[in-house]
Structures are given as C-alpha cells and as structure tokens.
Simulated assay, not measured.
Amino acid sequence: MKTVVVTTSPGFGKVGCVPQRIQEHDWEFIRCTDTTRPDGGVADHIERMEFLVVGLIPATAAVIGNAPRLRAVLKHGVGVDNIDVPAATARGIPVFNTPGANANAVAELALGSMLSLARRIPMMHQVVVGGAWQRHIGTEVEGKTLGVVGLGNIGKTLARKARALGMKVVATELYPDAAFVREHGIELLGLDALLAQADYVSLHVFGGKDNAHLIGAAELARMKPTAYLMNFARGEVVDLDALTAALQSDRLMGAAIDAYVAEPPDRSHPIFVHPRVVFTPHCGADTTESVERMGLMTIADIDTVLAGDRSPRVLNPEIYATPQRG
C-alpha cells in the first residue's frame, strides 16, 4: 500500500528536483489547496492521510485529531503558528519545519525592499511608464542603521548582507547568538532603543498572540520620522491602522509589507493607496532555490519517520518520551 502524503502547500512538490524525488518515492501524493474550504479539502482524505505537509492553510486540532493514520505534520516553511502543535503532541505525532531553508530568500527580499524604499523605485517606475519625467532625490543605505527585530536565521542572514553594504546593524533578540553578534559587530538593544535609533526596521519574529501588535502606535511614535518599517514576519505583528496613521501624518517615511492578517488582504484599507508603501504578496520565501530546499528537507523528514528514526528538526521531541495515543 502506498504512503499517503497530503499537502496544503501550493509550492511543495513543484520546483527543482523535488517533483522527481516525490515520483521516485511512489507515494500517493494529494494536493489540497481549495481556498474556499477552511482545510483546503483535507477532510476528503483525512481517513487515509499519513503525512500532512502544511502551507498557509491551518492544521487545526480538529484536522489532527480526526486523522487516525496521521504519522507526522510537516511545515513547508518555518513559521508553525498555523499548526496546533499541542494537539499533535497530545497524540504523540511529531511536527517538523524547515529552519534556515528560506533565510536567504527572505533576507534578499528585505534587502530589495529597503533599496526600493530608499530610491522610491516602484513610484519612479510608474512615473516613467505613465509618460512623466519626474526625478526624485532618494537616499543611500550605506551608513544608515538597520534594526533587525528577531535575529534568527533570516535576521542573521539579512544582518550579514546589510553589514556588507556598509550599514550599522542593531538587533533585538530573546536568545541571541553571542558569537554571531561579536563576529559581525551587531549591537543588541531593547525594542524601544532599537526603534529610536534605526533608519530601517525589519521584522523577523514569529506570529501568534504573543507578538500581536508588537508594533503599534506607541512603538511607531518612537521611530524617526525619516525611518522605514518593513514587515516580513506575520500580518498581526503590525497594527495596520496605526501604521497608516503614522504615514498619513508624516510621522514615518515609509513601509514595506509582505505579510497580512488576511491573505489576500482587504485592499479597501487606506494603506493600499499610500504612495510610500511597497507591497508584496507574502512571497519572501518564493525563490526556486528556497522552495527546493524546503521540499528536500520535508521529504527527508518523511523518510526519517518512515524509517522509525528521529530528525533533528522535530519541534516537539517530548513525544518520544511517551507512547503514542490514538
């Protein structure tokens, strides 16, 4: 009998050598990405599903609890805020993600967004294709200060690139890599001090209730009026209403947004007509190289579970201390 692998990720199994690797495994591979259904269509296969590879569609307690043959839940990405890890742990089911696989991709998009803001590239493009010839004096990033909120794999990769461009880097991180901080000359600060100093603030923290509105009106008020905010984390991390108010009153120079509370977002929100904001459709991890790395790591972890072994990427290792429950 074939192993049944269900995915709610639109990208898993489509890029690089990953489709061939899946074909070689001879799995029954099912894609459930129907956005009109809360579970993407997983319910149609839940009785037989052995592995669930998660995209942005949540893996809820109900999905996990009603899958009698489920052996592992795997995130095709890094953030697992849309996976009910406690529900999986209660059943003795391992949860995996792909740490570091998308770090370079997201860092490069953050860097590109920063340069786009500094030189108003999207606006200048529209000026030229619209038939006008309006030049704009921008700024250089060299010599500016980048504030990295969340110095994990993505934050560290961005910090290295920013330092190579001649930027000063300050960061806030609950569990900093002391050796990395020393090696790259990064100054660790509290969030308030970082916001006050940085010319660009780039967010790379997990979502969820603990970080909801991490950046709100009070935090935005601490930033320089010439500064830019960039959100490559999750939509709920930034209070969009407060950000809009700060931009409209010129208390903030601009912003770049890649993550939204609802996706696709409600474009009737006034921020979507602001000329100093750069928008991308939650595509930070969307490079051929990144998606291939995530896919290969996911396949490797499925193979590990099938072999009865443990992967170092398991997020709930405590399951191995107790027998699995149905």
Rank of each mutant, 00 (worst) to 15 (best):
V170P: 08
A217T: 13
Q126D: 15
R120M: 05
T304K: 12
R310E: 15
H136R: 10
K14Q: 14
A43W: 04
G55D: 02
H213R: 15
A62W: 08
R222S: 06
A171Y: 05
V54A: 03
D39L: 03
A72V: 00
V149W: 04
Q324A: 15
D239V: 01
E187F: 01
I186W: 10
G308S: 05
R163C: 11
H274S: 05
A90C: 05
P38L: 01
M114E: 07
C283E: 13
V42F: 09
Y200W: 14
D177A: 02
M297K: 13
R310L: 06
A217C: 05
T8E: 00
P68R: 08
A227P: 00
V261E: 11
E263V: 00
T89K: 03
R48P: 03
G295M: 05
P86G: 07
A87T: 01
G13F: 03
N104I: 11
R310Q: 14
P265S: 08
F29M: 07
L109C: 09
S290K: 01
E24N: 14
A300N: 12
G112C: 13
S311R: 08
D266W: 09
L189W: 06
M1Y: 08
R120E: 10
E263S: 02
P94G: 03
D286K: 12
S202Q: 02
G55C: 04
G55T: 01
L229A: 06
I93H: 03
T36F: 04
T280N: 06
N104S: 12
V127R: 10
L247H: 11
D241G: 10
L243A: 00
A198K: 04
R71C: 00
G13T: 03
G216C: 09
G308V: 01
I83N: 08
T33S: 12
Q324T: 13
H136W: 12
E219V: 04
R31Q: 14
A62R: 11
T3D: 08
G308F: 09
V4Y: 05
K156M: 15
V148I: 12
N66L: 00
F206D: 12
G235W: 08
A221R: 12
G152H: 09
G65C: 03
V85T: 04
D84L: 04
T145E: 01
D44H: 09
C32F: 11
T226S: 15
P176I: 05
E47R: 14
F12T: 02
F272R: 09
M294N: 00
F279E: 09
D250S: 13
L109H: 11
V205I: 11
I186S: 05
L194C: 11
M167I: 11
L247S: 12
R71D: 00
V6Y: 06
T244V: 09
A259T: 15
T139K: 13
E236C: 00
F180L: 06
V205Q: 07
E219T: 04
L111V: 01
V85Y: 09
G216F: 09
R21L: 15
L296T: 05
M253K: 14
D241Y: 10
V278I: 13
T60S: 14
D250A: 14
S202T: 13
D192I: 00
E24Y: 05
R31P: 10
M124H: 08
G185T: 04
I215W: 09
A198F: 10
A198V: 03
T287W: 11
Y200Q: 06
N97F: 02
I302N: 08
L243K: 07
